[in-house]
Structures are given as C-alpha cells and as structure tokens.
Design a protein around this nucleic acid. Structure first.
Lengths: 401, 401
DNA sequence: CCTAGTTTGTGCGTCGTCACGACAAACGGG
DNA sequence: CCCGTTTGTCGTGACGACGCACAAACTAGG
C-alpha cells in the first residue's frame, strides 16, 4: 500500500509542480500526517527535496516539496535512416546527456547499426553515472512497424529492415542492467508531446512528417498502442483513391500528398538545390520558408497544396478521435506559420463537431529530439509507477547540498 | 484499501468467471485468507454467492464463488429517431427488463420525447424493484454530438435537435435517485461490444451503420471519448473528395457511400418496395439478403460497392488505431455474410501493417439493443469501481436460496 | 511591540487490512 | 484405510493511514 501512495505523491509533484505537504494532503485526499511520512520516504529515496517556503498567505508558511531529479535518469534512443541518437533525462525532465551519430542505414547492416547505437548508449550511461545518477531504463524508438511484443521490427521500409530483433540484439550487446523497451518512433514522439500536468496535452494526436508520415495517439495521458502495437501509421491512410503511387506499393496514401517529397515535388524542379539530400533538413526548410516569405508563387502554391492535404487527414482523424490538439512535428513544425491557415481551414471544413470539436492545431517545439525524449520519459515512468524500485539512499555520499 | 481489493475480486469474477477463493488469491496475488474475507464481504453485500464445487483435481475441492447479479441493476436508455427504449441489466449481465416505444422524433418536440423516455425509465425502474433489485444508475444514449460534459446535445442532425439539455431535462423528470449519465449512442454500442473478460474485445472499433454511420473506439477496455466527447464520428470522415453531398452539408463523407441510403440507392429504384420506410429495417435487410442469395446482379453489385467503401474506411481507421477487431453493427450486421469478403479484401489492401495488423472483421450479434446494453454496462461499472456503495444487506428478506 | 488568529508540520494512539503460519476439512490414489 | 494434496478458516503480527493534539511560524491589527 505504501507504493501506490508514494506513486501518487510523486506524480502530483510532477504534474502540479512544487507544493507544501499540507497542499499535497488536501489535493490527494490524505491526512497531513500521511503526506508527511510519504514525503519523508521519497526524500529518503532521493527523489524529492524541500526547497524554499510558500510565502504570502496567512498562517504558517508551508515548506515547498519538489522533485529532485538528480538521483535517476531515463535513457531514450532512436534508430533512424540518417542517424542514431540518445538522450538522458533526469526525473525532473532535465537533459543530462545527449549523443547523436550521423549514418546512412542503407549502407550498413542492421547489426552494424545496433553496434553503433549500443556504443552511444554506453557513453550515455557513463555520462549519467559520472553525475551520480542511476539509469533506470532504456527505450529505443525505431522508424518502422514493431509487433506487439515490441521487440522485433517487422517491417522498416525506410531502413530497409525486415524482421530484425532489435530488442534481443541490444540486450545481447548491453546486458540486462536495466529494463529495455522498443517502441515505434512516432509513438515515442507522441509521448514526448504529452507533457505531464498540462491538461490540454493529455488527449493529442501527433503527426510526424519527414519523407514518410507517422505519428501517435495519446488518449487520457496514455499512449494508444493498438492490438499489436501498430497504431499511429497515419501516413498510409488512403486519402486520395486513384492518386499517386506510394513507396509502400499502394495508391493514394496520405504521405504521397503530405510528406516532404510531395512538397518538394510541387515546389521545386528536380535540379533545384533545395532538393539536394546533402543539405540538412533544417537548411532546406529554412530555404522554403525564405522563398515563401519573399512571395514566391510556386513555393506558396506548393505549401498551400500540402497544407490542404494535411488538413484533410487531420480532419479524418479528428472526426474519429476528437483530440484536444493536433501537434504537427518533424518537417511540418518548421513550416508552421506557412501551413497553419489552410490546415485550420480544412479542419473546420472537414470535422462534423462544431468548431472542429475544439481541436487546436499546434506545432512541436521539440525538433528532432521528440522521439528520444519520449523514450526517456517511458523509462522514467517506471519510477513514477513504483518509486520504491530506486535503490534506497542510492548515493548519499554526494549528500543533499 | 478494502474498496480497491473488493473491486479487484469482483472484476476478476466477472472477467474470468466463477472460481474458488484459493484461485482468486493466486490470480490476484493475495493470500487465501485475504481472499476469504473479501469474498465474505462481497457476499454480505449480496454481490456474490458460492455455487457448486470445483471437482476433478487432487486435494480438497474448492467451493466456487460467482457473481450474484440479482442485487443491483444498471439501466440503459436510448433516444433515437424512430424509438426510445430502455433495458435493465443485472450485475451478471442478465436482462431484467426491457421497454421500447416507437415514435417519430421529427413530429415531436424534444420535451415530448424526454417525457416518453422518462416514463419508460420509470417503468423499467419499477420492474427492477419488483424483482428485489436496486437500480444503481442510468445512462442515456443519444444519436448526436454530445459535448464534453455529456449532458447537452450540441447537434443531433437526425433528431433535428440543437443544444438540448438532455441530462438536465431527464434529471428534472426523474429526480436524483441515482447517477444519470448521457453518452453518444455509438460510444455506448462500442462499450456493449467490448465484453469484459474477452481479451480479444478490449481494443476494438465499432462501426454502427444506419442511415448515418457512427461508432466508438474502445482502447484497453476503456471507451475513448476524446477531448470534448466527440470521438467516434466516423460517418463524416471524408473518404471521397469531390464525391456525393452529405446531409451534413459536406461532400464525400463516408456515410454517403457506406450508409444504408447508399446501398438502397445502388440496389433499388426509388419505387422499389424495399425502400419503403414503412417497412421495418429488419424486413428490408432480409429482402436484400434474399435477393443477393438469389444472385440478383444489381443487388450484389450494390453490396460489393458498399462493402468496398466500408473496407476503405475501416482500413483508414485500422492504420490509425490497429484494433484487435472491427465490429460492424447496425444494418451492417445483418448483411455480414454478403459484405465480409470485400471488406476483408479492402482491409488487406489498405492497411500498412502485415496481415492487416491482425485486425479481424466481426459482425455484431446484439442487434439494436447494443446502445442500451452499453448504457446499462456503464451504470454497472460504478458498482465494479466501488462495491461498497451498494446498500449493505440490501434485501436479505429474499434470502439466499 | 504584542496578541489573536491561522495554517503548517510532526508525534502518538488507534484502527483497519493484509501477510504469515497453523490447523481442520475434504477429496483422490494406492 | 491411510497418505498426500489442496482448500478454507482462524489467530497473530506488522504496516500504513486516520484522528487528534501540540508546537512552530507567519499575518493582521491594535
């Protein structure tokens, strides 16, 4: 019984911010004495600390309790076509370490890619330990379809992988020091956008656009994985029957009209430098923004066309899911100002519920760290689920400053 | 702490069926003594009883504990275009009472419809009490968009209602004898299909077809309502840009190609008796089945066309949600044998995940009672959440037989 | 400056609930 | 018929939350 209430207190501090023990007690329906002992225990575990006092009101001021993130870290990792990367977030969400390695997955075997990622994870792990924190878990995001056990990549069209046992492969390289999870990239990006405590971000739809279009659904603060873990494959919804052929072999997939390639096809000739894959995506997006701002007709038309199709798909999903917000991530985010008006227009036009069911259109600010951040968050969730699994008095040598 | 564990035991008995106290203990991670006291308390509340013994194994046979549904009932109700209806289900899911009143919502004011429904509820309530059970809640399904408070019907296109305070209106007529909820009809139908304990029915997509097409999403056994409660409006997903005009004013909505009207338009001339609205829906469906079985070309072509479009929409949603099953309800259910092949074909063709992500196509067997059954289930859920809110020793006069 | 009032945090006694161990009961098998 | 096995119940103990009381720390107001 201790554990559930510890979990409750820790989550309350994460979601609602620092507060006094008395406030915790009333918020959670506990007595002040119970809140006190629970906080004391969390303090013992090194997960919270008292910092400052609550001034201003009448009566004795409360001493504020806040999450002390330094004791534990979650590690997120990502395997993408152009890079592998990792991040370590402490319990309060601060970045403790970050690594990134550019590569071309097509020119490497899956084993080679896993080798490189494992090396990055080892470095991240070492970084975490040098600041005195304990890693509590690792979650790896992969661009592709992961089956329900979420350990084997069934199909990774962009990576060119089939039936790769990502989970087992990494466990073999890293040992079983801490729990390892594997998850779809779009799903992890969605988790990253669902910031805890922000009530407007607990029912969201994240649409992640690069060459492909993917995403994830968060409902009631929890990721919707679907029966076998394949939820969130928005890019292959058929929105234009008889339209363009998609890389997946079908015709009319959403990503053929809303993906990066659709934009570039419409906005630039094949020899246009903005299409040079050697340039970074950020640079290419910046160039498109520049042209649009200068009023280039072709660029604006291309953006309008893509925005319209984004809106069509967003409206489909909004009719089905009625999210509080649709968060556009990936290449969409950098073009937010250009895309927003037509997306919103299509949403208004295509959603049955009045005022688009209150669904807002937002653009991610996490850039390309969304997936790794989501992975770290998943790993940390284990601590929020059961704070007692943190080694008691982990590294008291450092002491509380 | 008592309450959570009581809830756990009761749910286990519902989901996994009758079992001995020892089995309950091992399943739930409790000790046999704890399980014993919990069962004794539930017995005291009149919610479970011991029935029969567990024969066959070695050792002392356990006495089976099972849910005794008779003490409490949940009431479900429905407001539809052609009828209002109610049902009372006891805790074990048995039908205790059922009422139905045909009417034409267009020829009545909302107040008049609510009057008639209230009368039906009062009768249902009386039926429940005459068998010695206590009603624990009422949930009303309405065909239309209900805002997040789920008490005001924002738009009910088929009913011709706008901004009708269904919740307040019924409360005024019925008093506050027990909790009253209002929910979208499609959502309740979805809950009814997600039978507790059936692991293959905890992540499902229910598509309910009449003239309109609606439905609901159950993820992880819980209804997905969306931010403001508007989730599940599948019928107005635009699947055929530039297609037919919909009653909602837009063009290309799914229900214009998959709804009952689309089938009838394709299958029969305007003066064909099968289109006579005076006939019951069941009779019209039977006639279409008869013609299809006889090999009528036009009927089969119409069915194939509709099935294809159903499959297109189902594939869209399956890419997004990866449900374990898509349950087709309403008029779709009666035509299951005719529709299945092409729906499955489209699903295979339109879903990215291998083998359609494992999603099965199923047809509802609940007929037009799905929504009211779901409503009753919602009301009963309160008892499973907290068994102690049942009046202790409600009606022991009846005794345990 | 001092007092009254308010709110916070902690300590103590009590109670409820579960875990643990023991024991009688009820069955199958040799 | 006896033995091993499993079930259900009962006592004991531990653990955590509740209720209450009390000291501490602050504001407000004269």
């Amino acid at each position: 019984m201790r554990s559930p209430n510890l979990s409750l207190v820790l989550r309350q501090l994460r979601d609602q911010g620092p507060r006094s023990r008395a406030r915790l007690a009333t918020d959670l329906g506990l007595t002040r004495s119970a809140a006190s002992t629970l906080v004391a225990e969390l303090e013992e575990l090194g997960l919270v600390r008292t910092a400052g006092v609550e001034r201003g009101g009448v009566g004795r001021p409360g001493s504020l309790v806040e999450i002390d993130g330094r004791a534990v870290c979650g590690i997120g990792a990502e395997i993408n076509v152009n890079h592998v990367s990792t991040i370590a977030l402490d319990l309060s969400g601060q970045v403790v370490a970050e690594h990134r390695l550019a590569l071309d997955a097509h020119r490497l075997t899956a084993d080679e890619v896993l080798d490189k990622l494992a090396e990055l994870v080892r470095r991240t792990d070492a970084d975490v330990r040098t600041v005195g924190a304990t890693p509590v878990g690792l979650t790896v995001g992969v661009a592709g379809l992961l089956d329900s056990a979420r350990e084997v990549l069934a199909v990774g069209p962009n990576l060119g992988w089939r039936d790769v046992p990502v989970g087992a492969g990494l466990r073999a390289r890293l040992g079983a020091a801490y729990p390892l999870g594997v998850e779809n990239e779009g799903n992890l990006a969605a988790i990253a956008e669902a910031v805890p405590g922000d009530a407007t971000r607990q029912d969201i739809l994240v649409i992640f656009g690069e060459v492909g279009v993917g995403g994830g659904i968060v409902a009631g603060g929890r990721l919707l994985r679907g029966h076998q873990g394949y939820a969130g494959e928005f890019g292959h919804m058929i929105v234009e029957p008889g339209g363009r052929r998609c890389g997946c072999g079908r015709v009319g997939c959403w990503e053929t009209v809303a993906g990066l390639r659709a934009l570039l096809d419409a906005a630039a000739d094949p020899d246009d430098p903005v299409r040079d894959p050697a340039l970074s995506l950020d640079d290419r997006i910046a160039e498109i923004n520049r042209r649009a701002d200068l009023g280039d007709t072709r660029t604006r038309a291309a953006l309008d066309q893509v925005a319209g199709w984004i809106g069509v798909g967003a409206a489909l999903l909004t009719n089905a899911l009625n999210p509080a917000a649709i968060v556009l991530s990936g290449y969409f985010a950098g073009l937010g100002q250009q895309l927003r008006p037509l997306i919103e227009e299509q949403l208004q036009a295509g959603v049955l519920a009045p005022y688009s069911g209150g669904t807002r259109v937002e653009f991610s600010t996490l850039g390309f760290t969304a997936a790794v951040r989501g992975g770290a968050a998943v790993a940390l969730e284990a601590v929020f689920d059961d704070p007692t699994l943190v080694a008691p008095r982990a590294a008291l040598v450092g002491g509380t400053r």
